[in-house]
Computed example of a mutant assay.
Amino acid sequence: MIHLEFNSESENEGIARVVTAAYMMRFDPTVEEMADVKTAVSEAVTNCIVHAYETGEGRVILDISHEGRCMTITVEDFGVGIEDVEKAMEPMYTTKAEEERTGMGFSFMEAFMDKVEVISEPGRGTKVIMERTIGGTEAFHG
Results as ranks from 00 to 15, higher is better:
residue 86 E to W: 06
residue 53 Y to P: 03
residue 40 A to C: 04
residue 57 E to C: 11
residue 86 E to F: 06
residue 63 D to A: 08
residue 64 I to L: 13
residue 37 V to P: 01
residue 56 G to R: 08
residue 55 T to E: 14
residue 46 T to K: 08
residue 36 D to M: 13
residue 97 A to R: 12
residue 102 T to M: 10
residue 31 V to Q: 13
residue 87 K to W: 04
residue 66 H to F: 14
residue 103 G to T: 01
residue 51 H to C: 11
residue 76 E to V: 03
residue 49 I to S: 04
residue 105 G to D: 08
residue 104 M to R: 14
residue 61 I to G: 07
residue 43 E to I: 05
residue 89 M to P: 04
residue 94 T to R: 02
residue 35 A to C: 08
residue 104 M to C: 05
residue 73 I to Q: 01
residue 56 G to S: 09
residue 95 T to Q: 08
residue 95 T to E: 11
residue 73 I to K: 02
residue 59 R to F: 09
residue 45 V to I: 11
residue 33 E to P: 09
residue 61 I to M: 13
residue 97 A to E: 14
residue 108 F to W: 08
residue 52 A to W: 06
residue 108 F to Q: 04
residue 85 V to D: 04
residue 33 E to D: 11
residue 103 G to S: 02
residue 32 E to T: 13
residue 33 E to M: 05
residue 38 K to H: 05
residue 72 T to E: 14
residue 69 R to P: 06
residue 83 E to K: 12
residue 53 Y to W: 08
residue 35 A to N: 12
residue 54 E to S: 14
residue 88 A to Q: 07
residue 111 A to E: 13
residue 31 V to W: 10
residue 83 E to L: 11
residue 72 T to A: 04
residue 74 T to I: 15
residue 46 T to M: 12
residue 32 E to C: 03
residue 53 Y to R: 02
residue 112 F to L: 09
residue 75 V to E: 00
residue 100 E to P: 01
residue 79 G to T: 00
residue 83 E to N: 10
residue 36 D to N: 14
residue 91 P to K: 07
residue 100 E to Q: 11
residue 91 P to F: 10
residue 79 G to W: 05
residue 42 S to C: 12
residue 88 A to V: 08
residue 70 C to K: 11
residue 107 S to G: 13
residue 85 V to L: 07
residue 93 Y to V: 13
residue 86 E to G: 06
residue 111 A to P: 01
residue 111 A to Y: 07
residue 56 G to Y: 07
residue 97 A to Q: 11
residue 42 S to V: 05
residue 56 G to P: 12
residue 48 C to F: 06
residue 72 T to W: 07
residue 83 E to F: 09
residue 38 K to Y: 05
residue 45 V to P: 02
